[in-house]
């Protein structure tokens, strides 16, 4: 525990802040610590968390990806076409199709980044424009409502009715989210691939000299994020019950903020699943709390932005002082 606090100061501090906010909300409202509220928090943030762990892998490997949210929209659209063509499908084929399509889009990023030796931010901004532009061009911005029933039906993995009749339930997306988080945790924490990803983000030249297959690692990182993006896209449709081409536009930056807030280093080599979850939860709990406290929804974003600004300023200030003291 102490080692974790030393190795992951950002995560530890964020955890402390989150505990404080949670306690404050628990005391300040009588609705925060209810099963119904906590399950809805999880339902509402499953998609963001799937994206976040995917993005974490890319950040650890020393890259950045701006294109994943619109890639998820592309996957939704293509998947809707495919399900239409094969006449339905089910969750199993759905996950395979969405994950596979996402993987392909991620591999396009990886191929361009590796093939032309261009930094990831340039390529993913380009593919962001290509994905979104083509999607809007081909869909003409129209929504798709005619979706297979399995895709839009609610499936609960947990249901509970309290004494006063309030239903608490967890969506299938929460189960998928848990699986994605666990798979990512295993990938980055427990396999040799994970160590090679960290190594590449930490010291690309060192990794290359040690014989790490850089092309494979690029493919793994961006492919993994692409796959997560596709799966998250599938879940998002299950919640929204329609495919809206520009629904996910702009979500990438919020996910990025949450992941970096959770201690993932822009530039690579550092980042944890725990931090990633904490980062998403920080934003989610703050928003949930504002909601419960009856604050105008129009003020949510403003307060969250300010909260992140304060969080960055204080956390890095602390680190900055430490660094100065440690320096010769």
């Amino acid at each position: 525990m102490r080692r974790f606090a030393k190795d992951c100061p950002v995560e530890t501090r964020l955890f402390a802040v989150l505990v404080l906010i949670t306690l404050g909300l628990g005391l300040g409202t009588d609705t925060f610590f209810t099963l119904a509220n906590i399950t809805s928090l999880l339902n509402n943030n499953a998609v963001n968390l799937i994206w976040a762990v995917g993005l974490l892998v890319v950040l650890i490997a020393g890259g950045i990806d701006i294109s994943f949210a619109v890639a998820a929209s592309v996957v939704q659209y293509l998947a809707a076409l495919i399900f239409g063509a094969i006449g339905g499908g089910n969750w199993a084929t759905g996950l395979i199709v969405a994950g596979g399509l996402g993987l392909c889009l991620g591999l396009i990023n990886a191929a361009l980044i590796h093939g032309f030796r261009v930094v990831s931010i340039v390529i993913t901004i380009a593919t962001f424009n290509v994905f979104f532009g083509l999607l809007m061009f081909f869909t003409r911005g129209r929504n798709i409502y005619a979706l297979p029933g399995w895709w839009t039906d609610r499936i609960f993995i947990f249901e509970y009715q309290s004494a006063n009749g309030v239903w608490s339930e967890l969506n299938l997306s929460v189960a998928i989210m848990l699986a994605c988080v666990a798979a990512t945790a295993i990938l980055i924490g427990w396999t040799t691939w994970g160590r090679q990803l960290y190594a590449m983000g930490d010291n690309p030249e060192g990794a290359r000299r040690a014989g790490v297959n850089i092309a494979l690692m690029h493919g793994l990182a961006y492919g993994w994020l692409g796959m997560m993006a596709g799966i998250a896209g599938l879940c998002q449709v299950n919640i929204a019950k329609e495919v809206v081409p520009n629904a996910l536009y702009g979500r990438e930056l919020e996910v990025l903020a949450a992941v970096v807030l959770g201690g993932a280093r822009l530039g690579g080599g550092r980042g944890t699943i725990i931090g990633c979850i904490l980062g998403v939860l920080f934003v989610a709990v703050t928003q949930n709390g504002l909601n419960l406290l009856g604050i105008s929804p129009f003020a949510f974003q403003m307060i969250i932005g300010a909260a992140i600004l304060v969080a960055i300023s204080t956390s890095n200030l602390d680190l900055g002082l430490k660094r100065r003291r440690a320096a010769p």
Binding site: L256, V260, Q301, M302, I303, G305, G320
Partner: peptide, 22 residues
């Protein structure tokens, strides 16, 4: 503070957008 400009300006973006919408 020495924070990364991407994160700082992202937070500022979220804040200003929120302020404007508010």
């Amino acid at each position: 503070v020495g924070a990364h400009p991407i994160l700082v300006s992202l937070a500022m973006m979220i804040f200003l957008r929120g302020l404007g919408e508010f």
